[in-house]
Amino acid sequence: MRVSDFDFFLPSDLIAQHPPAERGDSRMLLVDRHTGNSTDAHFRDFPAQLRPGDLLILNNSRVIPARLFARRAGLRTQHNSPAPTGQVEVLLTQPLGNDRWRALVKPGRKVPTGEHLIFEAPENRVEAPVNRVPQVREANLGIRAQARTLLEAKVIESGDFGERTLQFSPTQDFFGALEQLGHMPLPPYIHRSEEDEEEDRTRYQTVYAGANTHGSAAAPTAGLHFTPQVLEQIKARGVQIEYLTLHVGLGTFQPVRVEDLADIRLHEEPYTLPATTAEAIHKAKSEGQRIIAVGTTTTRTLEHIAAINRIEPHSGTTSIFLQPGHRFQLVNALLTNFHLPKSTLLMLVSALAETENQTTTGREKILRAYTHAIEQHYRFFSYGDCMFLS
């Protein structure tokens, strides 16, 4: 199959630029994966779509303020000197352990291997995130306020398309520093006068993100619809809720650069499968109950652990690419947002819509559902509406 087979036209005014006024106040398209038939609904109807005995699995990874601005150490200036030049943008995309991170750097041509980067917060900015450009001018003085170095990193490896591996100097509270320095890594199709806003700190984060599961460079967006009240309603229906962790990384930001699906290679992303979730999966499979994934990240993790036959507590990495023709071993249904044209996520959803002995392909079913969603003015992408494919 060709990547162009998954293209569709989306009017730009349907790309959600802000979350709905209230979390969970979203529309939901119900799609029968066997027939392709669709029904308009709202996310508040989601608990009613679940059955007693279902197992609902969510990704509890926490999004970090991963978009940072740094300057090259060789361009360091003294206090009250003109503002520094050579500023670079750094997007942390994957934790590698031992204070190392994979990142995208712009402009990459100015940041070779061996370069040192300095991440500073102005003195008058302690608890709140810094402005887009980490420098300020004191009122009526026209001079640069003293900046504090919060993080330092060395580029230890270079890759294509601005990819870099950074070795950060040890710090007592790395994620605390990110909270002061960083911006939420909103996708490039969200166009704002400001890079991010205060509401993004909470709304671009699931309500169930773990306290110690920092690491995602993008939100597992299907989970953004959930509220504590909805989770309680689901439990009240006799549905078991469990979690896994997959840190969303570089693949979210990189476009597909090949035309043949057979040539697609995804970046590895780290995941953790807890013991309680592994046990729940075994129980659901043995009892013939449905396993419902919230989001494509959860789906990829579940199908990866099935492919390697390791449904037990462990951590690892996955680069699994789910495309039409894949036979799903664990996931029976999926709650997901609407995805970009020609994206691997759209291919994944199309794969789940494939059923045996059907004359209509999964791709055709999903593109037909997307056409309906466009005609009915559903909101698309990260802050948009959702689809339940079952």
Score class of each variant (00 low, 15 high):
residue 4 S to H: 01
residue 6 F to K: 02
residue 7 D to S: 15
residue 10 L to D: 02
residue 26 S to K: 05
residue 27 R to V: 02
residue 31 V to S: 03
residue 33 R to Y: 00
residue 37 N to E: 14
residue 39 T to G: 04
residue 43 F to D: 00
residue 47 P to S: 06
residue 49 Q to K: 02
residue 52 P to L: 05
residue 55 L to A: 05
residue 67 R to H: 15
residue 71 R to Y: 15
residue 73 A to R: 12
residue 82 P to I: 08
residue 84 P to W: 09
residue 84 P to C: 06
residue 86 G to M: 07
residue 93 T to H: 09
residue 95 P to H: 15
residue 96 L to H: 12
residue 98 N to W: 13
residue 101 W to L: 13
residue 111 V to N: 04
residue 115 E to W: 02
residue 116 H to I: 12
residue 117 L to W: 05
residue 119 F to W: 13
residue 122 P to R: 07
residue 123 E to Q: 15
residue 130 V to M: 05
residue 133 V to S: 12
residue 134 P to M: 11
residue 134 P to S: 06
residue 135 Q to W: 14
residue 135 Q to A: 09
residue 137 R to E: 10
residue 139 A to G: 10
residue 139 A to Y: 12
residue 144 R to Y: 05
residue 146 Q to F: 10
residue 148 R to G: 03
residue 150 L to T: 05
residue 153 A to I: 10
residue 158 S to Q: 07
residue 163 E to Y: 09
residue 164 R to M: 03
residue 172 Q to S: 14
residue 175 F to S: 05
residue 176 G to W: 00
residue 178 L to E: 04
residue 179 E to I: 00
residue 180 Q to E: 10
residue 181 L to V: 08
residue 190 I to E: 04
residue 191 H to S: 07
residue 191 H to G: 00
residue 193 S to H: 05
residue 195 E to S: 08
residue 196 D to Y: 02
residue 198 E to A: 15
residue 201 R to M: 08
residue 204 Y to W: 01
residue 213 T to L: 04
residue 220 P to W: 03
residue 233 Q to N: 04
residue 238 G to T: 03
residue 242 E to I: 06
residue 247 H to I: 03
residue 255 P to T: 11
residue 261 L to H: 04
residue 269 E to N: 15
residue 273 L to N: 00
residue 283 K to F: 07
residue 286 S to Q: 11
residue 290 R to H: 08
residue 292 I to G: 00
residue 304 H to T: 09
residue 305 I to K: 04
residue 308 I to R: 13
residue 310 R to I: 08
residue 314 H to D: 09
residue 314 H to Q: 14
residue 317 T to A: 13
residue 324 P to N: 02
residue 325 G to L: 06
residue 326 H to S: 03
residue 328 F to T: 02
residue 331 V to M: 01
residue 333 A to K: 01
residue 339 H to N: 15
residue 339 H to T: 08
residue 342 K to M: 12
residue 342 K to H: 03
residue 347 M to C: 07
residue 350 S to Y: 11
residue 350 S to L: 08
residue 353 A to H: 01
residue 354 E to S: 09
residue 355 T to F: 03
residue 356 E to K: 12
residue 356 E to M: 11
residue 358 Q to A: 15
residue 359 T to A: 13
residue 364 E to H: 06
residue 368 R to M: 08
residue 373 A to E: 04
residue 380 F to S: 00
residue 389 L to I: 14
